[in-house]
Design a binder for these strands. Structure first.
Lengths: 343, 343
DNA sequence: TGCCAGAATGACAACGCTGTCAATTATCTA
DNA sequence: TAGATAATTGACAGCGTTGTCATTCTGGCA
């Protein structure tokens, strides 16, 4: 019934170890031997047993994806990106959602790592930004790659980081609005614990500055990355008697923007003739709102796939950075119907 | 550094095997011995090595979740439900998205099973409905639990099925619309390969019949479970010159309903005064549309948690069905703002 | 008290693979 | 062509558990 490495070795007329070398793509196996083994592998339809590999080897054949993010679209994209790489490499993916507010999260996390002996971890924001987590992983000697909001050359230890340039994205979005004649541009910010929030804010400020527009704190709403926050933020910013004459709102992400859109509708404000709204990320539902959202496209599946690439390359201990791995991503603006000329 | 079962045994002054018995909750361990071992476990913070357990034991400590569903909310809920159970049981979850249209999906699937020696599988629709998959799993001798659309007593082999009563949900939704005075009720159907589509259609038909309303094929649009399909379906059904006088549309699910809402807006049709729209599932974005959707609440995380429960109980070989496991779920209607009296 | 069934525990060999290091073969140099 | 070096290959011992089966306790009963 079940085919083991020994069966393959016997059929190919080589030692078990040589088969092991072949399936692990180790160097110094003669081409002829390689082919011999491979045909035996195919004939028997041999599948190496992951548990045995994990047990015998120094590192395991599984990596973990750790996230604390309520956004389903984001998580699914992350998973799929990492998964596609895992499949190519013959690894398993252990998913680990967790709440970084939870006190024993860190312990639980540690337990998981010890149990599964993961080859490495992909960390997404905001966990990837937590120093205590990073310290723990360093102490445990676990490989990891961090997905971070930041600009090129931002981080000293950037050789295990994948950066998303939210600064540039926000700059570009803001500039787009300015070019449409907007001057009173509000911003419903995401969770302030997220680095992306401060990066996006910085990009927004820089764009205003470069175009000689005075920033104003009254135009900022400190919210979170949720639909509700978008609703509340927009209501607050647009409420009667607000002297700000807001003509555009940047949503912290697409969900927030969708919430703002929702609030605008409640208040009978027409988009985009009376108010322009923008998002970030270009998640599917930025195309499902009415009108569709102008946003900054961020290919999360591609990004996470590169994170996995980087992790594998590190795990293999390759000195030189693999040329195919891109470590900085800059979202680019997608103009749809939620933005228009300032009234 | 790493604590093994031997360290625990030494500290507790018992054999390795006894420790194994304790951590596996096997019977016939004296209370005193049990406590002794447990305190050693705690003192050393011992974590059994999953790989070794998988290798040595007859079945592994991981289950798989297989899905082919583009709906991120659905998938995340499924994952979280199963995951919460896995955590309690000390199992790992291997996620396996796949496309059931893909030709070599089945092979790939088989490969995964052989590699990981999974203790069992949770199958979601539409894969859970495919006989060829079921046959393969039976042949491979793999435990599985199917999530299926169906009514109580529907399926002979229902001891490894969790049923969602889409018939009842559709009946209730349709009846709600009828009670509001609607008579010309259209239905944008989901993928016809999904059993849920035919079940929902049957529930709709039954409700019409019970209220003496003649069904009419012109009111049906054969679409798929996507936003776009909702848009196209509604456009088609509502287009100028359509003599059907439609006053309400059932969306195949919330996405479809959101699409229909979108289309109505494009056509300047007011919801709900001119047209009522409903969804299924009560996914988060049924609360993010404008107006919010009337839909049928379906707790996918609870459902999938029960699927996992059932799987574990089967894997343990318990004869009698665990009393805590619910195997039939009936979604219940949630009335929001997208439905109103027929004009 | 002595004997015995049954409960509790232990010894030891797998599980299927990889790491280490030794043995063999091929290739190159003078 | 001998000798030396490098490239291949193989033997074997683990990796940390659990399954099997043998052994040692218990407590109950005559």
């Amino acid at each position: 019934m079940k085919v083991t490495i020994n069966d393959v070795a016997k059929l190919a007329g080589v030692s078990m170890k040589t088969v092991s070398r072949v399936i692990n793509k180790e160097p110094s196996v003669r081409k002829k031997t390689y082919d011999l083994v491979m045909s035996a592998v195919n004939e028997l339809n041999y599948q190496p047993n992951i548990a045995a590999r994990n047990l015998a080897g120094t590192s395991s054949f599984a990596i973990g994806l750790v996230y604390d993010n309520p956004n389903a679209y984001y998580v699914i994209d992350m998973q799929n990106g990492v998964l596609s790489r895992c499949k190519d490499e013959g690894y398993e993916l252990v998913i680990h959602p967790c709440s970084y507010l939870d006190d024993n999260m860190q312990d639980e996390f540690k337990t998981m790592i010890k149990r599964s002996r993961l080859a490495g971890l992909v960390l997404t924001p905001p966990l990837s930004e937590q120093q205590s987590i990073i310290d723990m992983l360093d102490e445990l000697g676990v490989q990891y790659v961090r997905l971070l909001s930041g600009r090129e050359g931002d981080i000293s230890e950037r050789n295990n980081c994948i950066l998303v340039n939210d600064f540039a994205a926000a700059y570009e979005i803001t500039e787009h609005l300015i070019s449409l004649g907007h001057k009173r541009i509000a911003f419903v910010l995401g969770d302030k614990e997220h680095k992306s929030t401060s990066e996006r804010l910085a990009g927004y400020h820089q764009a205003l500055k470069d175009h000689n527009i005075e920033p104003c704190d009254d135009l900022l709403y400190e919210g979170s990355y949720s639909f509700e926050s978008g609703v509340n933020g927009a209501k607050e910013l647009l409420k009667d008697g607000n002297p700000n004459m807001i003509t555009a709102i940047l949503g912290g992400n697409d969900e927030v923007a969708a919430g703002a859109l929702f609030a605008a509708r409640l208040m009978n404000i027409d988009i985009p003739s009376e108010l322009s709204i923008t998002g970030f990320e270009d998640s599917p539902f930025s195309r499902q709102t009415w009108p569709k959202l102008t946003t900054a496209h961020q290919a999360n599946d591609v990004i996470s796939e590169h994170a996995a690439r980087l992790l594998f390359s590190k795990a293999r201990g390759s000195r030189k950075q693999d040329k195919d791995i891109k470590t900085t991503f800059t979202p680019s603006i997608v103009i749809r119907e939620s933005t228009g000329p300032a009234k």
